[in-house]
Design a protein around this nucleic acid. Structure first.
Lengths: 153, 153
DNA sequence: AAGATAAATGATATGATATATCATTAATTA
DNA sequence: TAATTAATGATATATCATATCATTTATCTT
């Protein structure tokens, strides 16, 4: 079984456990995100959905399904790009951490890594010392991936 | 002289030194950002521009002026909000640091603090260890400000 | 199983954000 | 002062996102 099917199967199981309704369409949308090596916009997803599923789907529905996926940590929205990616932890049992996205400026691939505890602590400390309380953090960092860094030299 | 005028004057001087053309319209747009206690969208700025300057201005021009302001570190774009704020350091001689924005979820006020060296180092280290190289960081953190945290309790 | 209820999706319209492009005006410079 | 460049205007359109009401599908209750 390939990686994608494996990931989907794990999402199925996780959804069942959590009592979530990963409907065929939501599942298919999720598979499109899983299969993509770059983030996709809602409209790009609608196009791919039609191409691969043979059925046109309104943008409204795509946004709703993306809401479902992001609310249930199967996907994330990259606010700096207005695009969506599958969650790197959707297929494992890792507790969901503060996500940190390394976005390659050149090839647009994204790597999601969990934020390190020391970074988080330092961040929270700096927020506290400004008199604020942290509610939610999602770090999006503009980077070059190794391949692109090499190509750019 | 009030704070706003003072800030503008410092921006004038800094622009002159740097050979930037802070035209009357750019300057006025900047003053709108300085005067606002919350981030503003380009279209909100266009409205305020008309209201306060007596002259309608096309959205395109607002975006161009915002490009100028952001490129020259007089303003920042908050990508998670699609809104713009004046730079907290536009009026001082601080070297421009990696900005960290504390955005109050409730009242939408934003506090810009410089990222602490330890946070930055830890961040860079985590990026490096993922095989990426950091190009640009702008942290946008969803928080509650002190006043709103109290009101919410 | 039948009907009631709720959840998901479709259809349509529209709002909000942003950029492309060419024309015009203003500033700079040769 | 003419030539050139930079800034802004005008217009159109692309792109991202949500509001709202209708319809279909799933789930629950009896």
């Amino acid at each position: 079984m390939n990686q994608l099917d494996d990931a989907l199967q794990q999402a199925d199981q996780a959804s069942t456990r959590a009592g979530l309704k990963l409907t065929p369409k939501r599942r298919h949308l999720f598979s499109l995100l899983l299969a993509s090596d770059t983030p996709l916009s809602a409209y790009e997803l609608a196009d791919r959905f039609k191409d691969s599923f043979g059925q046109a789907i309104p943008a409204m529905s795509v946004y709703r399904m993306l809401d479902f996926l992001t609310e249930n940590n199967l996907a994330h929205k990259l606010t700096s790009e207005n695009k969506f990616v599958s969650c790197a932890h959707s297929t494992c049992n890792h507790a969901h951490q503060v996500p940190q996205f390394l976005i390659c400026e050149r090839c647009h691939q994204v790597k999601e890594v969990g934020i390190k505890k020391e970074v988080f602590d330092a961040l929270r400390e700096s927020v506290d010392s400004a008199g604020y309380s942290l509610r939610e953090a999602q770090l999006e960092l503009k980077c070059l991936c190794a391949a692109c860094a090499e190509a750019t030299e």
